[in-house]
């Protein structure tokens, strides 16, 4: 199992800050700035960070809703074993086949279904555009998918419009649509954040169950560490376009190394009033990464910043053992001095 399902190399997305008409832009927001990670088959990676950290942009690049400015997204190809294919180089005539393997679940269940199309039309759309099956076969497949996502009996739902469904039911439809092509990789962008608390767990459980049944890997994008913990095998923490820490979920939450991860973790409200936590205060608020300087991205807010942070470039992700990678000069120096 050394062959990853997906490998991201130096992935970067720059958005020009528009500067008037017909002028070449000189300022760029570094939304995603040279990130690297791998996802193994059947594994779920949580991408965690605050709004504007580039997590959604990353997700959109992985499903080719957005072109990368530079860097590569490499995917294993089931037909040619062992080879990783750069999704940027997929010829147009093979794009449809790529689409079968990679799907996405969106955040807003109220906006992710076309209000003028029925559940059947929505869920069968991937089959229709991929020319899979006859109408009858599609109907059977859609019914089966609805049953799998807990919308039973399917006949009661097939010809409803989105406005006749609750938020939770819509998200179930969205999951059915994402899995109907039997993909191997699904990007889930905050799929439960707009749902009521009492619905969330059943949707998350459903996604976990289907991940097993369909042998699918998720890139689970969320701002909520508690949700990431429930859903993911590994977690990557993003800050202003950079991954600052990545590793096994329990390792990251139990033994956070990067100051930002520590601050994030200490800020998560805990549903237990008797829980006393370590307060980690960080400075200021989040800024935008417009033409960021080369040193550590977190430097302005880091309460522990030292000279080495100011004089050197943004630290690379370094292995701290057991696949726990951290991008911080201080963590390294702590280790070497110890």
């Amino acid at each position: 199992m050394s062959q990853p399902l997906l490998k991201v190399e130096n992935l970067t997305k720059l958005f020009p800050v528009s500067k008037g008409f017909l002028r070449t832009p000189t300022d760029f927001i570094h939304a995603v700035d040279g990130i690297n990670f791998e996802i193994q088959p059947g594994e779920s990676l949580g991408l965690v960070g605050e709004s504007g950290c580039g997590k959604s942009t990353t997700g959109r690049m992985l499903v080719k809703l957005m072109e990368a400015s530079s860097g590569h997204v490499l995917m294993s190809d089931k037909t040619h074993t062992d080879d990783l294919i750069d999704i940027a180089n997929i010829p147009n005539d093979q794009m449809k086949r790529f689409r079968r393997r990679v799907q996405m679940i969106f955040q807003d269940p109220y906006e992710s279904m076309n209000p003028r199309r029925t559940v059947f039309e929505t869920v069968s759309e991937p089959l229709t555009v991929q020319n899979i099956g006859s109408l009858k076969e599609r109907e059977e497949r859609v019914s089966e998918m609805l049953r799998l996502v807990g919308l039973a009996p399917p006949d009661a739902f097939l010809f409803r419009y989105p406005h006749e469904l609750s938020g939770g039911q819509r998200q179930r439809v969205a999951i059915a649509r994402a899995l109907v092509l039997d993909p191997s990789f699904v990007v889930a962008d905050e799929p439960t954040s707009m749902l009521d608390v009492s619905i969330r767990i059943s949707i998350m459980d459903l996604m976990l169950k289907l991940a097993d049944e369909f042998d699918v890997s998720y890139l689970y994008i969320t701002h909520d560490l508690a949700v990431a913990r429930y859903m993911c095998d590994r977690i990557a923490v993003m800050y202003l376009g950079k991954i600052v820490e990545i590793g096994d979920t329990e390792e990251i939450l139990g033994n956070p190394q990067h100051p930002y991860t520590k601050a994030l973790l200490s800020a998560v409200p805990v549903p237990d009033p008797s829980f006393k936590r370590e307060e980690v205060e960080i400075l200021g608020g989040i800024t935008k990464a417009i033409n960021p300087p080369s040193e550590c991205r977190f430097i302005e807010r880091c309460p522990w910043a030292k000279d080495v942070c100011r004089t050197s470039d943004h630290p690379p992700l370094e292995d701290k053992g057991d696949g726990h990678y951290v991008a911080c000069h201080l963590v390294e120096s702590a280790l070497t001095s110890a």
């Binding site: 619905i199 767990i201 459980d205 508690a226 429930y230």
Partner: peptide
């Protein structure tokens, strides 16, 4: 409460409503 995920405590299966 049983269906609220948390970053603390044991990692457990939550009970859906």
């Amino acid at each position: 409460l049983s269906s609220t995920p948390s970053v603390t405590g044991p990692r457990r299966k939550l009970a859906p409503l």
